[in-house]
């Protein structure tokens, strides 16, 4: 078993988890990297993605797991260098290695939410197109908003209605947040950076926005940009 670390950005964020699976399988074929196939009537390549990503969410820490076909021996660096030229726009292979931690050891996820209000645009501060570094004039409306959001996420309990297959379910998301900071960004935008539970159960960072929408409807953002930044184990060591 090997692992591939990759980013999903740009146009690619609008494709679903299943679409991404198909795109990766095709990319491996294009790169001439043979994957091991399952036995049986409809053989499938052994390729999976550790944590499915919601449509519209960016990530710089996606991990795919795969097994090379027997006889296909390639050093991990070559897998990266072969994949990159044939990956669709927005998908970038960042690293590849053999083996890796047990998937069950994955515990936390760092994510960044950029909330844009009114006509301002949700620019991701990390992508170099303006953002946190640019000075924002202190404005009382913005300060009120920051204060209200900080207060909201400091509550010991924060129930949110989550849509599951069995209908709406009330979930307390507060225990699933390990760290959370709220800061101001350019153009009246707000950046929330949080470390949330990655599994058992997972907290989709977009639920933080749902919490704002239901608890503080006056601070409902006009546009949200969400990006996964890093994965960690129970001890906050980077998960690979």
């Amino acid at each position: 078993m090997s692992r591939l670390l990759f980013a999903k950005e740009g146009a690619a964020i609008w494709s679903s988890h299943l679409d991404l699976m198909r795109a990766l399988m095709r990319s491996f074929r294009r790169a001439g990297i043979d994957l091991k196939h399952s036995q049986g009537f409809t053989p499938h390549p052994e390729l999976s993605i550790l944590m499915p990503l919601s449509v519209g969410v960016e990530s710089q820490c996606e991990i795919a797991e795969f097994t090379l076909a027997e006889g296909c021996v390639l050093p991990p660096e070559e897998i990266v260098s072969r994949l990159n030229p044939v990956l669709p726009a927005g998908i970038r292979a960042l690293d590849c290695w053999e083996g890796g931690r047990k998937a069950g050891k994955l515990a936390w996820l760092r994510a960044r939410l950029t909330l844009a209000y009114e006509e301002s645009e949700a620019r991701d501060p990390g992508s170099g197109d303006g953002g946190a570094d640019s000075p924002t004039p202190p404005r009382s409306a913005q300060n009120d908003r920051l204060e209200a959001l900080r207060e909201l996420f400091a509550r010991p309990s924060l129930t949110v209605e989550k849509h599951s297959k069995k209908g709406p379910v009330e979930t307390d998301i507060a225990p699933m947040i390990r760290e959370l900071t709220v800061s101001a960004a350019a153009g009246d935008a707000v950046v929330i950076e949080a470390v949330v539970a990655a599994q058992n159960p997972t907290l989709n960072p977009l639920l933080l926005v749902t919490a704002i929408e239901t608890r503080l409807p006056e601070y409902k953002p006009a546009q949200v940009r969400c990006r996964r930044l890093e994965l960690y184990d129970e001890d906050m060591q980077v998960f690979r």
């Binding site: 609008w14 449509v55 726009a89 546009q223």
Partner: peptide, 23 residues
């Protein structure tokens, strides 16, 4: 693109409106 970023989260199958496919 700025308008699309606001619209796409609300529509079904947004991938069909963005292009950027391989080749």
């Amino acid at each position: 693109d700025a308008a699309l970023a606001r619209i796409l989260p609300r529509v079904q199958k947004p991938a069909r409106y963005v292009g950027g496919e391989y080749n």
